[in-house]
């Protein structure tokens, strides 16, 4: 049944802002984004919010609800008590543009720094052969809808602006893992993931995995295996010794 829900929404821009309280009608089956839209249509026509698909597929409506990173379109009102105040704020890790819309350009910059898919030379289109079991590892990571909630929650950059330069964040460390696990990719990103993407900053607290709306096992399936690959290459004493003696290329 319809009831008046209590919404507390952050409004402002890069210079200043504040939490504002609203009472908005909520109906059966609705999600927080529905209420934000009703707020726009009835009380605050210029309230800024990003959204697209409203079905959890595009990753546009990322924000924080009661402090937790969430997709507004997948946050059911029914998880809250009817008299509970629901606080909606923009993702904190990125600079705010206006209201619930942050500047997420950091992510697009990091994406550009990862060496792209590199197929074997001479393999023609139509000749690609891969087994399902082999593509599934990377397919899990390609479920990513780039909502950037994992980036938002990651404590390496959440309150440490200074780490942003050296750290690509879980989404892009996972992108490296995806390419490294692609059955046909021939490039080597193991050194770069440590030196350029800053894998060493991650201390596997699994916060990214917890907030992932696609339930991707970011830490277990992407970050830890990448850490193991780095450790194998850099810190395995036998490999180290072998490298010293034989001066292997690429190590």
């Amino acid at each position: 049944m319809a009831y008046p829900a209590k919404l507390r929404v952050w409004r402002g821009d890069a210079t200043s802002g504040e939490l504002q309280d609203f009472e908005v009608e909520a109906n059966e089956g609705e999600v927080v984004l529905d209420l934000i839209h009703r707020l726009q249509a009835t009380q605050t026509p210029d309230l800024a919010v990003r959204w697209n698909c409203k079905a959890g597929k595009c990753g546009s409506c990322s924000a924080e609800v009661n402090g937790r990173p969430r997709l507004l379109c997948m946050t059911r009102m029914s998880i809250f008590d009817e008299d509970e105040i629901i606080t909606v704020t923009p993702m904190r890790t990125f600079p705010v543009i206006r209201d619930l819309v942050p500047d997420v350009s950091y992510n697009y910059e990091k994406a550009r720094e990862i060496p792209s898919f590199t197929p074997p030379e001479g393999l023609e289109p139509g000749e690609y052969r891969m087994q399902q079991v082999d593509v599934e590892r990377s397919q899990e990571f390609r479920k990513c809808i780039e909502c950037f909630l994992c980036q938002d929650t990651c404590h390496v950059i959440r309150d440490h602006e200074e780490n942003k330069e050296a750290f690509a964040g879980p989404r892009y460390l996972m992108r490296v893992a995806e390419l490294e696990m692609h059955p046909l990719d021939v490039a080597d990103r193991v050194d770069a993931v440590q030196d350029a993407q800053g894998l060493g900053y991650c201390n596997i607290t699994k916060c990214c995995t917890e907030v992932c709306p696609e339930s991707i096992h970011i830490t277990d399936n992407a970050l830890i295996p990448m850490k193991e690959r780095v450790a194998d290459r850099r810190y395995d004493p036998i490999v180290w010794l072998g490298n010293k003696i034989f001066k292997r290329n690429g190590a």
């Binding site: 898919f117 289109p125 139509g126 087994q131 399902q132 397919q139 390419l179 692609h182």
Partner: peptide
């Protein structure tokens, strides 16, 4: 068909048949 195969050269990972 050519346009789909081309996507594999960009890195797309479609589901596979038993023969890959």
């Amino acid at each position: 068909p050519d346009r789909v195969w081309e996507l594999e050269t960009y890195g797309a990972l479609f589901d596979r048949t038993a023969d890959g």
